[in-house]
């Protein structure tokens, strides 16, 4: 929940914007392609984001990009991807459909927890850009061992102590279960 909210904050209306772009492109179709100058604004490639205990994995949908023209950078907790891909060449005599987003693209993702910027791996294959960002050591979920002292008799709680010793299995099992749940 928290993650989703924070990420949404980065691009609040982008889905709507994409929808609108898409509709406009379809509606204007050929006319738009033939007459309007190419949009100067960079388009935003769609991505998926998966989060595991150790890393974030991001996959950008970017078919038809020359890997040389693909730039991936990390600054703090923000991942930036930008580049350019060619569209219909200028010497085309006639354009029938122009459905692809072409030209300059850019997208930034802000991560809710720190990432280990030294060990980020990016791989571009078959039109998909995979970026793996390990979570910073301090941001990884840690398991905290619950210490259960049996001989706490030195403090001034005489009555409950005797009972806990007797039935130690039940309460201790419950206690460790609840801590695990809250970690997740």
């Amino acid at each position: 929940m928290t993650y989703l909210r924070q990420l949404n904050r980065v691009h609040p209306f982008e889905t709507l914007g994409r929808l609108h772009d898409d509709m406009r492109r379809r509606a204007l179709g050929q006319m738009h392609a033939a007459t309007a100058p190419r949009a100067k604004r960079a388009w935003q490639p769609p991505f998926t984001l998966h989060e595991s205990e150790l890393a974030f994995e991001v996959r950008f949908l970017l078919p038809g990009v020359d890997p040389e023209r693909l730039e991936v950078s990390v600054e703090g907790d923000v991942l930036r991807v930008s580049g350019e891909r060619p569209g219909i060449p200028d010497d085309a005599r006639r354009r029938f459909t122009n459905e692809r987003c072409t030209g300059a693209f850019a997208r930034a993702i802000e991560f809710p927890t720190p990432v280990d910027s030294e060990h980020i791996a990016a791989r571009y294959r078959d039109g998909i850009l995979h970026v793996t960002l390990p979570r910073a050591a301090e941001a990884r979920p840690r398991r905290i061992d619950v210490r259960y002292d049996t001989d706490v008799g030195d403090t001034d709680t005489p009555q409950p102590n005797a009972q806990m010793d007797a039935g130690s299995i039940g309460p201790s099992g419950d206690a460790s279960n609840t801590t695990q749940n809250t970690e997740d």
Partner: peptide
């Protein structure tokens, strides 16, 4: 899949997006 289709003097050309396809 999304596609661009255009024509030159001697050929028609298609560019079809097939991400993840080998």
């Amino acid at each position: 899949p999304r596609a661009d289709i255009w024509e030159t003097d001697c050929a028609a050309q298609l560019a079809i997006e097939l991400p993840g396809v080998t």
